[in-house]
Nucleic acid binder design. Structure first.
Lengths: 152, 152
DNA sequence: GTGATTGCAAAGCGTTTGCACCGTA
DNA sequence: TACGGTGCAAACGCTTTGCAATCAC
């Protein structure tokens, strides 16, 4: 019944580069810059944010390369799109298995958690609606411990 | 513990018009056309879809009026944006209270259901993460009974 | 009659495409 | 060396804005 939470972490970086290489893509500076920026971020970033952050280290990076790298990372399921009331263009490091998102409404910090046995609910909804349920999304919004303390 | 499901229905139409009027907006033909189109739809529609459908009855409707009407209906919480892997531009009749969406991946038909006591999960996640949870989204994707039969 | 609302055209913005040059393997 | 990847500029599609004409109240 444990509800583990986990944050995105920089250790992803090398895995992602390996995965890109294993998939037949070349390891270039623009790709490294995008990967590093996303792997270091605790919150979801959109293309422009990645572009601005990554250019601090790699000024010649083009916005187009950010889009093209995001496309590949998403296809490889290394990152995933985050849906949010303010927009759905941001990406965050993805985890394997069934994970749900917890997002801070103040600083944007995101964590994953394992939402254990929602299966009972699936079955009830399936029975009452007649739908065959294939997939589900569960997302929580709130204030992380740091932002809660800062408010006081 | 019941998990009621309910579909959008045309009865919304008059309520929406009343609500628009009560909020100080004028009841115009373009607004009626948009309201009628959305209230009659079982699935979420984006601006262009509403535009095309509504013009069958009201050909002089402009796309801009669709956007402006959607903006007002959303502010009044009569409709809500539907987040979907294919995009987040579509709107559906909103319900009051805490409701969750169930969407058919084949025909797009949407229903609401009441996801009873997720509170236990909230508390566990809140405790383990340190987050103060304010809001949650729960969405199911699957195949409705009609699309399941059609497949066979 | 008056001012909110309309449709059109143009602007705006994020994203994708075309292309010649560059750099990884 | 070969060809995948790059950055720039232009194109694209969706949404918003400016404006004169229109219509609900």
């Amino acid at each position: 019944m444990a509800t583990k939470t986990s944050s995105p972490c920089p250790e992803n970086k090398q895995d992602w580069l390996d995965c890109l290489k294993a998939s037949g893509y070349r390891l270039t500076s623009p790709r490294r810059a995008v990967v590093e920026t996303l792997a270091n971020s605790q919150r979801a970033l959109n293309a422009t944010e990645i572009y601005d952050l990554a250019r601090e280290q790699y000024p010649s990076l083009g916005l187009v390369s950010v889009y093209r790298t995001l496309e590949k990372l998403e296809q490889l399921e290394l990152i995933q799109r985050v849906h949010h009331p303010d927009g759905c263009q941001a990406f965050i490091a993805g985890f394997t298995g069934h994970q749900h998102l917890l997002i801070c409404q103040s600083c944007g910090k995101a964590e994953f958690f394992e939402g254990d046995n929602l299966e009972m609910l699936f079955e009830r909804v399936a029975q009452e609606s007649g739908y065959q349920i294939q997939e589900h999304w569960l997302q929580f919004f709130g204030f992380c411990s740091k932002c809660r303390t800062d408010k006081d």
